[in-house]
């Protein structure tokens, strides 16, 4: 555990951020704050992937000039960057849909508290 803290400080920071986002998602009653927690979990995953791909002392994977055989020992891992790019687009899309649903709920019930929304929806169902 202590070894994890000294050797993997970046990964540990990302995972703690993930935990904060998750508890934010579960504890808050406000829908907007829940969505913020969800986005924090997304960002934590990107931080984790980016720190996994980083290699100390190496260059970004952009070739400066045409070389006959670029060596893999010069550049950082390019694959996590591509995966993070995909993830960011998907998280933007899901955040947009969640916020749109929240706007609809607010227009209907005039509150952002999820308990109140559930209560009123139940009342509307029973009536």
């Amino acid at each position: 555990m202590l070894n994890a803290l000294t050797d993997h400080l970046e990964e540990v920071a990302a995972l703690i951020l993930f935990g904060i986002g998750f508890s934010n998602l579960l504890l808050n009653r406000n829908m907007i704050k829940k969505i913020i927690g969800f986005s924090m979990m997304d960002s934590a995953i990107y931080l984790f992937l980016a720190s996994y791909g980083y290699i100390r002392g190496r260059l970004a994977p952009i070739l400066p000039a045409e070389t006959p055989a670029p060596s893999v020992t010069q550049y950082v891992n390019p694959l996590p960057a591509g995966l993070v790019l995909t993830g960011i687009v998907v998280s933007v899309s899901s955040t947009a849909i969640m916020l749109a649903l929240t706007v609809r709920l607010y227009r209907r019930y005039h509150t952002l508290n999820i308990d109140e929304i559930a209560m009123r929806a139940k009342e509307a169902d029973e009536a």
Binding site: A4, V12, I16, S23
Partner: peptide
């Protein structure tokens, strides 16, 4: 949440060092 965090952090010990 703390349990999940601890579990994940303990898993990082098996990963290669940062960098």
């Amino acid at each position: 949440c703390v349990a999940i965090c601890a579990l994940l952090i303990a898993t990082t010990a098996d990963m290669p060092r940062f960098g």
